[in-house]
Design a protein around this nucleic acid. Structure first.
Lengths: 154, 154
DNA sequence: GTAGACTCGACAACGTGGTTGACGAAATAG
DNA sequence: CTATTTCGTCAACCACGTTGTCGAGTCTAC
């Protein structure tokens, strides 16, 4: 209340909201058999998608270099969430595909996010939550933004 | 609008809002003579505060180890934003103090954040923005949360 | 059909932000 | 006086990003 109207608080609240959701997601994800999925991995797997992608394409989607994307794929592969498959029609390309385990984590993430949103809706009311989402949509640039949280911040 | 009610969109919107504010801050900060302040540095300087702090205390405030805090102080010191001062009454302690340049960046940050909030208020309306802040306060845990964004995410 | 340009994935080196573990020095508790 | 705690630092390591380089494969133009 002392910080009412302080410009300092707004970014903190937005980040706290983001972090609250992501932490709740990963707590539940861990409980459902995915204890070693980090926030960054979730975003990367989301970017890989069901159809898969090459490392270069993944880099473009995430807004990072192809080298950084390649390293992320290494970690995902080491954990059994993704795999590299040679492309028959192009000897240079290696398609990165999610394993069944990777797809499972993605499906569960979507469900958990829906449940979390429902909790917020129950607390704030559907209208208030929808207003918040609409207002955020108005005020953030519409073009896709970069998801390289760790690298961006530090 | 296709994503209306999608649990996936909410965290993205919150993060995009956070990032939009932080990016705007640093663009303006760079214009005002602080081009090499990174988001992480701003949070660290905020935690150091006007009165200064020891590296261990800084670590506690940021939620990271004293070693990590010490490294952050190194980078801040290298850029001329902070300095270490021996404590006369305790031979172990070294107080980390912001330099005038460090304080200047903090003062300007506060002003810029206020201006950015005013822009949001002009776009959304005072009431809508205040509602958003109130709703976020309702839904995020009240206890102080960790500011180690980079380390948390990745 | 082949020469040049482009793309792909990988390698190396580095910067930044974290972690543990260990350690000497200084303060404090008994 | 001794035992414990705390402070700052050093060293090693990991995660996530960067740039530069490179061989190999594909595509385009002549």
């Amino acid at each position: 209340m002392a910080e009412q109207g302080s410009g300092f608080e707004l970014p903190l609240l937005l980040f706290a909201g983001f972090r609250t959701l992501i932490d709740a997601l990963h707590t539940e994800l861990a409980r459902q058999g995915h204890p070693d999925v980090r926030p960054a991995y979730g975003f990367a797997m989301q970017a890989i998608g069901i159809d898969g992608a090459t490392a270069s394409e993944l880099g473009r989607r995430l807004g990072v270099s192809k080298q950084a994307a390649g390293k992320t794929v290494d970690r995902l592969a080491a954990l059994g969430y993704a795999e590299r498959v040679d492309d028959d029609t192009d000897g240079r390309r290696k398609l990165v595909r999610l394993t069944p385990r990777g797809i499972d984590s993605l499906v569960r993430s979507a469900e958990i996010f829906d449940q979390l949103r429902a909790q917020w809706a129950a607390t704030l009311g559907q209208n208030r939550l929808a207003s918040m989402e609409n207002d955020l949509r108005t005020v953030v640039p519409t073009d896709g933004f970069r998801l390289d949280v760790a690298g961006w911040f530090g």
